[in-house]
Design a protein around this nucleic acid. Structure first.
Lengths: 199, 199, 199, 199
DNA sequence: TATGAATGAGCGTTCATTCAT
DNA sequence: CATGAATGAACGCTCATTCAT
């Protein structure tokens, strides 16, 4: 039922998705829904929770562990972005819901989503701090701000890349995944690396 | 009525805003709403239309017109970003609605918003192409992709800067506007400029 | 305004006709309507009143005055029916409203219409009684019942003849007026005349 | 719910009957209505459909099957009319809705009703043609027109007989059913039979 | 576990009517 | 005489939720 619901949330949006839509698509009766979930809000929260877990797992795997040269850093970033975009390709509905449609839902759900995005940010921050610790980047102020920019750039780009300017579910990406990875990492690299000790 | 409605849309979201909320906040009767607007959807579309107009006007004013050195380009970018962030500060509700909450509304509204963001992108693209023409930037592929990244970075940053990680209307920015401008332009500068002839 | 309103009542029906339809078709402002008429009901009642006057005038002109033979009676009936059908052709909207659509309006209006039809009946009754007085018809019971049947036959036929089986305003009669007159009078003649002294 | 609704439609008319009237009279909640019917229009259409079925069944049973003399034809007509009037007595609300109030409803409903009346006409036409085939009546033009007159006469008479000149639901018929049957059949007999070969 | 009929609060919208100008 | 903006009661309909089976 989670997958079915996520698909509906992603395409129609939270409010426009009726519980009756969910159950009819899932092939069960209306009442059955309420055996599995307390209410409509809860299924959304579960979806977000599970999505967050997977998303952070992907990001976590790209975490820099060893010291290395600039090139190692770039390679590591590329690997992370590649994993992220691959995950995005395999979880289109999740991306659409988390990065776009979700903000139209009710407060509690919006907050759960915001929290997810914030944790992404935190991980990017950690990544940057780690790179500084490892001596790969010079120390700087405003690491969180830079992590924000990265997050926005990445989530926004994933949405636009996958769904086009009108955020259409049936859109087919026109740019190969490698190009997107390169562009992001390029921005990231120059944005972060060359900012040097600016503080 | 437009301002009152925008505020409600921005804080509660489109669906959670009842027409009765709008009219009671505006101090008129329920029926009066329908004298001025065909229905709830139309007022949203009008708000978006007007917001788009203003937003694009701000962006257009930052359009590069004269050739210049690298420094001119940076200054011009800073001026544009400063205008944009100032406009954002003075139109918090519009930002919240366009960049976040709006995607939870119905198809027609979402499309109108997407179109607005897309036109921002197009303007950034034009800006980049213009800089190439003027010899300020080397020629490159994927200008639209870079414009997308810029747009995402900027809109996302505006939202996060103004409303914090939980997108809370009562949040107060913790980072001074100049720092944000510097960071954005830094990213933009290195991202775009130093990408050189990579194609 | 009366004509405009009658046309709308006849085509759309009483309830489906909005005061705003009337005034926009009449080319005046909404408020003006209420200078001429107390409310929507009143204009309907005025229309019915005026229609009744005209209708009864037509019927009254066909009233038998002089004694005569059977043939005189048939000729007189034919003349009456011809006048009635001619009037109907020239007052399609009135027919449609009185004989069909009107019964869907509110109580007071329905009663005004019923009264109109009843007065038609009364006149037919008088006509029959007069013919009996003049010795053109034998005396009989149930004259009112026969008058009812005549009325129903005539009003129904007028509606069906002018507007077809679906009561469509744009329908064009397929049967010439003389044929209709002949058929009605034939029915009337044999129905009334030959019923002889049956009592 | 169908019976309850028919009663309300027949007494108050379609537009004046609120869904809340229906459900409160039926003793269920507002929402329950929409579990059984798509909307208010649909229940009207179902009522008409069912009414048509029953009405045509009654008429069909009176269909002439065997050849016979004039008297057989009259007897057969009387039986049909008697059945029809008996059915009408037992389905007062249906009569009131189909023959009077229904024409005030919206287009789709009006058309469904018109269709019902038209099928009555068609059946009467068939009956006449069958009588011609059987040699009980001479051939003639304008059979459909005569069927129309019959239908109008009969439906109108049923309405007036049952509900009086003001079409009042609480009216009690003042004329015994047999008299009405006799009068109708008399009109029909002389109207149809004696019209001979007039063409 | 699972069903699906039943609920009812709440919403968007309509439209006859009013009234200051 | 005429306007048209403003009113607000009332309606049809939706849909998340409940509960007897």
């Amino acid at each position: 039922m989670l997958n079915v619901t996520l698909e509906l949330f992603a395409t129609k949006g939270y409010h426009a998705t009726k519980v009756s839509d969910i159950v009819s698509k899932a092939g069960v009766a209306q009442g059955t829904f309420y055996w599995y979930f307390k209410n409509k809000e809860e299924i959304a929260l579960q979806i977000i929770e599970e999505g967050k877990r997977q998303l952070l797992e992907v990001i976590h795997q790209g975490y820099r562990k060893d010291q290395g040269c600039i090139n190692d850093m770039i390679q590591s970033s590329k690997r992370l972005m590649h994993n992220l975009l691959t995950f995005a390709s395999e979880n289109r509905n999740l991306m659409l819901f988390l990065f776009l449609k979700g903000q139209g839902a009710d407060l509690k759900i919006r907050n759960a989503i915001s929290e997810t995005l914030f944790e992404m940010e935190v991980n990017f921050s950690k990544n940057i701090y780690r790179a500084i610790e490892l001596g790969m980047l010079e120390d700087r102020d405003y690491v969180p701000l830079q992590a924000q920019m990265l997050t926005n750039m990445i989530t926004g780009l994933i949405a636009r890349w996958q769904f086009g300017p009108l955020y259409d579910w049936d859109y087919t990406p026109t740019v190969p995944i490698n190009v997107v990875v390169d562009e992001i990492v390029h921005f990231e690299f120059f944005g972060l690396l060359l900012s040097g000790g600016r503080r």
